[in-house]
Structures are given as structure tokens and as C-alpha cells.
Design a protein around this nucleic acid. Sequence first.
DNA 1: CTGAAAGCGCTAACAT
DNA 2: ATGTTAGCGCTTTCAG
Lengths: 367, 367
Amino acid sequence: MTEASPQGGQPSPPLPRVRLVDVAREAGLSKTTVSAALNGTGRLSPEVRERARETARRMGYRPNATARRLRAGRARLIGYVVGEFADAPWTFPESPYLARLTAATAATSLRRGYAMVLLPAGSLQSEWADLSLDAVVVADPVADDPIVEDLLAARIPVFSDRSVEGRPGAYWVDVDAGAAVRGALDHLRDQGARRPVLVVPDSTTRFHSEVYAAHRTWCAARDLPERVVRVDGSGNGPVVRAVERALAADPADDPAADQARPDALLVVAEASPPLVLDAARRLGYEVPGDLLLVCVSEDVTAEHADPPVTTLSLRPEAIAEAGIGMLVAVLEDGDQGAAGVLVPTRLDVRASSVRSAQPEYTSRPPT
Amino acid sequence: MTEASPQGGQPSPPLPRVRLVDVAREAGLSKTTVSAALNGTGRLSPEVRERARETARRMGYRPNATARRLRAGRARLIGYVVGEFADAPWTFPESPYLARLTAATAATSLRRGYAMVLLPAGSLQSEWADLSLDAVVVADPVADDPIVEDLLAARIPVFSDRSVEGRPGAYWVDVDAGAAVRGALDHLRDQGARRPVLVVPDSTTRFHSEVYAAHRTWCAARDLPERVVRVDGSGNGPVVRAVERALAADPADDPAADQARPDALLVVAEASPPLVLDAARRLGYEVPGDLLLVCVSEDVTAEHADPPVTTLSLRPEAIAEAGIGMLVAVLEDGDQGAAGVLVPTRLDVRASSVRSAQPEYTSRPPT
DNA sequence: CTGAAAGCGCTAACAT
DNA sequence: ATGTTAGCGCTTTCAG
């Protein structure tokens, strides 16, 4: 029977943790001295500091975070919630983008000293009001999202991956949608596309409006017809149906049916790349032979699809980094700098958008 | 200029939050009374209780969770980390199962009064030792996972979705693998399959061993050849390659090549259903015509694939529910009941495993 | 250079 | 029935 609680031993009452006083007593020092030694503060003789540290280590001392937080006045705890969607929330289990943003936010914030509490999507502030969060990250909020309003009313700083401009207390990171769309369209054109179709959600977010605007401008500048198909919701179903509509070459749009057949697709809505590919195949397109395909997606299946699908990555890790950077600045320095920041996207070119059967390459080395 | 901080107003120093004393003073009562009133404890006259509540509400009082936690001695904070994998951790952004387990754990624990801190996959205990977590949920640990060892050494209770038997302080929930496999195989046989192949990871977890064992027993009882193909890693790539091997009807396995052609596939390894379907198609199989397909998966794309793919769900929500149930019992009552519990799976039958073109149905009503 | 003491905001004994 | 008081474990002036 070692001291590590034996198999069926006594219920091992959460044995009293060793506190700062315990270490102090053991080392023959005062709480103050040990605290200073451990935190590297104050002016202590190297010997004393070392003695304190050694004793603490030996006794397996672990500071009580709660006491620290109380003392500090801030909990160093932030919340993370997925914004509310019109109807069913498109939660992160269904979205590789959100999943990666979630993981990256947790990792980044922890590195900066903040623990991230994951909050159920679509839950309301009242359900976790008693957590004393220093700030809340709201992923993918809709315009005038009730969660955001709620938080701001409670004077809790909000950080979001979508533009929420003009609200004091709300900070945001967003992607440079214009550059992203131009980059993707330029690439498709370079590969020979002349009748690209844009598939984009019918939403009012800054991101989607900007995608739409950039596309319009790009087409106008090249005297190309502006072909857009709107997605009427979120999730694989709606996107796939929109893709089907885009590829069906609706004669209502353009009577010269044959001429109307698209030769490239830029899907700016999250959907499983293999499913999009399947849709194209069902409608008689061969990718990349008849149709070049680029999807905005973080889904790893893009690489394994046949052919591998070119993706436009929103770089959730970069968004998290930028967002948490702002959060820390605001929380710790009350920073009144810019309330928003834009991060660039990345195009990962794969076979689905390359006319000649070239080897896969990427516009940037993997991070 | 309303009181809600004006546009470019002063830096609004985190204005002093209203405390319990403030409410007490305002209501002409003592801290104790207000505290009791708000918490529903003690014996107070209804009028006083109401007065305290009303004053608190009016002043926008929100209790300081940190102070409560300190007082209570427990933080009501639990950690959630994805276990360490042999090489690259198969993190939840890439696994619908883990994504849903993560979300469900967060939601369930919050409902039970515990905030869930999301910890970076593969991170070590030392990186978040100073969070004072009451317990940690380790998702998908490997055998003798260093994270689990680490936690147990620090005397932090561990809850896992994989069997970690025989370790004091470690509790687990696992799925009833045997029943799951038998159910799926029975279904395939009912649909006419006579040469099913099992695709399963080459791992030592209780779950996979049990899958293997159940399959072997099932085959023996029916005098069917035991056909198994091992997956050599995790992620879509390895699984798809294993599927290809399974379907290639390796003559080394069985010289009677034609006879050897499998007529059903049970994939007990997480991969994108559309990708598995693509693999079958590439090898000249038509699903469900030539090949019945069942995948263990939580991926929503299964429903949208063509044909929709039958899945065996591990029911992450049920696992989370059971796990958090144990966690609360252990933390709050020091429960020394069973250290592990098994939850049943669910087979969602779709077109990919139905010989005759029947309408989709499910073995159980959706939860 | 080190120690004693105050107090973060709350709750639960213990008076009154 | 309500108020007074003593801490939870830590950091931090402020004396010594």
C-alpha cells in the first residue's frame, strides 16, 4: 500500500491541499516571502528565494487560482459562444471553420493566460451570468445578434469574428473578403475560366456583402456577366442545392443555354467539398475538365477528395490570434485602439481548379 | 448622451461593480440577509426577501463568482482535453464525434453547474496546472495516456470516454461495442450481405478490441469467414486506403477472387462518408447495388451523400450526459459507485445499406 | 531584506 | 427573524 491511494481504499477525502502558509511554515518563512519568491516579485536574497521554491516544489504546492483571481479582481476567464442563427444554430460540430476557430481561440487565450469556457451555442447570457467572465468571444454572430446586445448591456466586452462596427464595447476581427474574392477569381481566370459563377449565402454580414460587392466590381472591370446564385440557409443541404441550381444553367437567366453553361464555381459558403463535387458529377460535369472548383472551406476532406479541391481558407487560427490579441490589450491596458482588424485569407490551390494536370501547390507555405 | 457609454467617451474604467454590501446598504439590510434572500437559504420573512431581491435587481447586482468559488472551496470548473495520440493528435476540428462530444460536454456540465474550460489538445497538465480545475474530462485517451497519468498523479479526478479501468480516480463511459457490432452485422445480413468486411483501426483500446472480438464471435457462430482489414492510423487518408484495400479483394487473402469480392462493408473508423463512398465507386462498386455500406460516424454529410449513408452513431450526447452525471456524483457526493458505465449505440439506417430501394428509416426515433 | 496585517466579495456559524 | 463576525487563500502595502 503506497501513499498513492490503494485500490479499494478509504474514500480518500479530498485531502487538504497544501497552502501557501504550509509552505511558509515548513520553510520557516512568512507567507509574504514565499509568495514573492514564487512570483518572482519583491527583492529577496537568492538563497531565500531558492529555499522557498524548493520547499514549495517538495511539498507539491499548487497555488489556488480562485484565491488569486479574487485578489486580482479579474477572473482571467473568457467565454466563447457561437452566435445565434436565424433558426437552427449552425454549431461548430457541423462547421470545420467554427471547430478550428474554437480550438484556436482556446489555445491562444490559454497561452495568453486566459482560460476559455465553452458556452453552448445559442445559449443566453442569463444562463451563464454567474460565471464572472472577463469577456466573451462571439463566433459568427448575425447582425444585431441578441447575444451581443445582451452582453453589451451587461457591460461585458465582446469580441467577434464578424464585423460588429459602431458599438462601444464590441471589438471584431474579420477577413479581407474583397482581396479573397479577387484572388480566387483571378486564379480561376488564369486557369481559363470565362463564365464563373459565385455561390454565396443570402446574408447581411459584412463578409458576405463584401464578397458580393467585390465580385460585382471584378466582373464589371472585365466585362463579364455577373453570375450569382444565392444560398438560402446554412448547412450542407442548402449549399448543395444552390450549387445544383448554379450548374443547372437555368434558361431563365440566360436563354442561350449552351453558352450559359458555367465553367467555374466559387462557393463562398461552407459545405463538404466531396458533396459539392458529387453534385457537379451528378449534373454531368467533370472536375476540373468541364468545371473549375474553388470552395471556401476549412474541411480537411478537401485534400482527400477526388480530385482534391482547391480551398480558400479563412485562416481561423490567424483570426483567433488577432482576436485574442485585441482582447488582452483591451482587458489589460484598456486599449482604445482600433475596434476592428482585418486578416488576409489563403488560397490552397489543388487539382480541382487547375486546367492542366499540374502537381498540387500552395500559394503560401503551410504555417 | 445616455448613461450607456457614449460613442467616443471616456475610457470607461471598469466601473466598480455593485457588490452585496451595496445592495444591503441600499435596502437597509445586512449582507447576510440579502445573501440569504438571494440564495433562498435561511428563514426570512417573505417581505424582506422580496425587498432584497427587488433592490438587487434594480441595482443590477450580479454576484461575484470568484468570491463564491473561494468561499465554496471548489471552483465548479472542469477541464476538457483531447487525449494524446501516437503522433499527430486527431483533434476535434477533424472529428465530428469529438466535436459533438465537446459541445455536448460543455452544455451538459453547464446545466449541472460546472463551467467547462476547453484545453488545447495534447497540452500538458503543467500548462494549465494553475487553473484549479475540479476535474478534467479526457476525450479519446490512448492506453496509459500521459495526460491521464499526469492528472492522476496530481490527484485530479479524470473522466474519460474510453475505458481506463483499474485506476483509482479515473472514471469512464464507453460504448457497448459488442452490441453495436452485432446490431450492424445483423442488419447487413438481413439485407442480404454474405461476405461482409470489417474495417477497424489497429488499436488497443477496449472499444476496438471489443469490436474485433464481437465480429469474430459473430462470424464463427454463422460459419462465415472472418474478414478484417486494419486501419494503420487515424484520419480520412488511412481509413480510405484501408477501405480500398478491403475492396480490392486481395488475392493473397483468398485465391477465389470472384468469390472473395465483398458485398458489405462495416467501417468502424471515423472517416467522411462521402469519401468512403467515392472510394467504393472508384473501385467499381455501386452502393447499395453491389455493396452495402455502414459507417461508424457522426458526420452530418452522411445524410447528404448520394446515396445517404447508414451510420452507427456512438451518441456523443449520451456519453457526455453519462460522464458528467458521474462527475457530479463523484465531486459532490464522493460517490464510490461504479467507476465505469456503458451506453448503447444507435444505427441510423439509410439507403447505403438497404438492398431494395426502401424509404429511409431509423431504428429509433431521433432524440 | 523580511514579516505582520489588511482585505478582495462572499457565505455560514454564531449571536442577538 | 435579522445582524455581527470570521474566514476561504492569496497578494500587497506598510512597518520593522
